[in-house]
């Protein structure tokens, strides 16, 4: 925690030099649905809060909100994103304080409206407001490339693209990277989610290098497929807090990289089995 506090101080110092204490808005996006945007947003946000930063999570998936249940905060919602942008309430009223970290907040999406209830201009203004209050604003983007996507990226300073090692997901990620760059969000960073080392080893799943080769962007983390994600989502507690979770460890490393630290990739090697040893002996490997 001492180290975390020092990082915060350093960050404030850096901001101070520029003459302002502005936070940063990071959008988590993917194109395809179901690849882990919400889980990633929840874990990055919680991880940054754990490190001592003030963080707000913003769910922009209007009509299909889920970040609230993943964070275990669904019972505390009074106002939502649309209430804020349409000035039904003040920003402070809509922010839900996390149960575990006092410096972590959630701005939930509206469930009964649709994506056109918010405009990119309104999102830009909101992002400016959030930057004054928080060190980090993590925007959870809806699937697709329509207005929901344009809203989510409108006020972002940086983008993180999540993809799984599947043809459809990589294809959609490529499309999203093109759209992000066209919207002047240069150098998006990639998270490869739900990789299965056993399948990669067998040659039945694309490896990190294969995907980077195709997408040609920087990697910011690799998260292994992990049952603890299901358990932590059931509980409403992001697995980044679970010291025994492999995916949690991966997210802790991603959190550090977001702060600018250099952290090696997690070792995803599967232990050598009996057959592997025989193969080696016979010289087939």
């Amino acid at each position: 925690m001492v180290i975390a506090a020092r990082v915060v101080e350093k960050n404030k110092e850096l901001c101070g030099k520029v003459g302002q204490t502005m936070g940063e808005v990071i959008v988590v996006t993917s194109g395809k649905g179901g690849v882990g945007k919400t889980t990633t947003s929840a874990n990055i946000g919680t991880g940054l809060a754990q490190a001592g930063f003030s963080v707000v999570l913003v769910d922009t998936d209007i009509g299909l909100r889920n970040l609230d249940v993943v964070m275990g905060l669904e019972n505390r919602i009074v106002y939502d994103l649309v209430d804020v942008t349409s000035e039904n309430c003040r920003l402070k009223q809509a922010l839900i304080k996390d149960k575990r970290f006092a410096n972590l907040h959630l701005l939930p999406a509206a469930q009964t409206k649709d994506k056109t209830a918010v405009s990119p201009e309104q999102m830009k203004a909101l992002a400016e407001e959030l930057k004054k209050e928080f060190d980090y604003a993590i925007i959870d983007c809806p699937a697709g490339i329509e207005q929901g996507f344009r809203n989510a990226i409108a006020g972002a300073d940086r983008a993180v693209v999540v993809c799984t090692p599947e043809v459809s997901s990589v294809r959609d990620a490529d499309r999203i990277i093109g759209l992000l760059e066209a919207a002047d969000l240069k150098n998006p960073k990639l998270i490869i989610n739900r990789i299965r080392p056993q399948m990669v080893k067998r040659g039945d799943m694309m490896d990190i290098d294969d995907i980077l080769d195709i997408l040609a962007i920087d990697l910011i983390g690799v998260v292994p497929e992990d049952e603890s994600i299901v358990v932590s989502t059931n509980r409403g507690e992001p697995c980044v807090m679970d010291k025994n979770s492999k995916a949690g460890e991966a997210y802790r490393r991603i959190t550090k990289r977001i702060q600018g630290e250099e952290v090696p990739l997690m070792n995803l090697d599967v232990p050598e089995g009996f057959m592997d040893k025989i193969k080696k002996l016979v010289g087939l490997r």
Binding site: V167, V170, V200, R202, G203, D204, M205, M206, D210, I214
Partner: peptide, 10 residues
Amino acid sequence: SSKSLAKERL
């Protein structure tokens, strides 16, 4: 391997 197939198709 099905992975090289995936890569080529992509």
